[in-house]
Amino acid sequence: MFAWLDDLTAYGTLVEIGYAKGRGKTIVIAAPETPQTFGWLSEASEVGIGIADSATNDLWFAFSCASSTIAAATPLEALKEVVRLSPNLESPIEQAFWGAYVQQMPRELNGLEAQHPVFGGRYRIDFALPKQKIGIELDGYAWHSSPEAFTRDRARQRELELDGWRIVRFSGSEITKDAADCVRQAAAFAASIERDRPTP
């Protein structure tokens, strides 16, 4: 379910959000701002404190039901972000990593892309910050266990690094055990690279 909230009178939408939550549906809430910074809450407080308190509680209810939240200027921008946040992933470990990323949305990984093509599409990096040339690779046993795959992975990694990419790798068992921790480690890796980059 996708809901755009930019008004304090969205009671029908709030009911639908609660119903979707009760049915176990994925809920994406998008709004111009987060509940903490909604400018129109201050407008409501001019009418009466009870209205503002009630509206704040309603918004917190809606946002607490969400699987993910998006701040965007318009509903169209929010929908574009929904598409970006719903990539077509090839494996369960990629889905687990992306799900943990969407839950956390660490600032260090802002702009993370899934299935990023490089060298004209000859290779694909599982997850990438293209502007910083930082890649995150997930090595599942099924795809990376043969001697040929092992050799191919090393040649590919060297080629990427010669082009300026920095790659962090996680095994499938690491992702399965604790995808959220892998996301935190990837964010720390990206932060350390940015800290170590020479200033122009």
Rank of each mutant, 00 (worst) to 15 (best):
residue 92 P to R: 08
residue 151 T to L: 14
residue 67 S to H: 14
residue 78 A to E: 05
residue 140 G to S: 12
residue 158 R to A: 12
residue 160 L to S: 00
residue 59 L to W: 11
residue 82 V to K: 03
residue 64 S to M: 04
residue 81 E to R: 11
residue 52 A to E: 15
residue 90 E to N: 15
residue 70 I to M: 09
residue 74 T to R: 13
residue 53 D to L: 14
residue 120 G to S: 02
residue 89 L to W: 07
residue 94 E to K: 08
residue 153 D to H: 09
residue 135 G to M: 08
residue 54 S to Y: 14
residue 65 C to E: 09
residue 135 G to F: 06
residue 154 R to A: 10
residue 118 V to N: 03
residue 74 T to Y: 05
residue 84 R to D: 02
residue 96 A to H: 03
residue 75 P to C: 13
residue 125 I to P: 06
residue 72 A to R: 09
residue 93 I to R: 06
residue 147 P to R: 11
residue 147 P to Y: 06
residue 114 A to L: 00
residue 117 P to R: 00
residue 150 F to N: 08
residue 82 V to S: 03
residue 129 L to E: 10
residue 87 P to N: 01
residue 54 S to L: 15
residue 146 S to H: 01
residue 57 N to F: 09
residue 132 Q to M: 04
residue 143 W to R: 08
residue 129 L to C: 11
residue 132 Q to H: 08
residue 153 D to G: 07
residue 161 E to Q: 15
residue 109 L to E: 06
residue 153 D to W: 10
residue 102 V to W: 07
residue 89 L to C: 04
residue 141 Y to V: 07
residue 138 L to K: 05
residue 143 W to I: 04
residue 140 G to A: 02
residue 55 A to P: 03
residue 113 E to S: 12
residue 73 A to M: 06
residue 51 I to Y: 13
residue 108 E to W: 02
residue 68 S to P: 00
residue 75 P to M: 10
residue 95 Q to I: 13
residue 129 L to I: 09
residue 151 T to E: 14
residue 93 I to E: 11
residue 107 R to F: 07
residue 156 R to M: 09
residue 52 A to C: 13
residue 136 I to H: 06
residue 131 K to P: 01
residue 107 R to Q: 15
residue 153 D to P: 11
residue 140 G to F: 00
residue 67 S to P: 09
residue 80 K to D: 15
residue 69 T to A: 12
residue 152 R to D: 12
residue 74 T to V: 08
residue 132 Q to D: 14
residue 133 K to Y: 05
residue 52 A to P: 09
residue 115 Q to Y: 04
residue 128 A to Q: 10
residue 75 P to K: 10
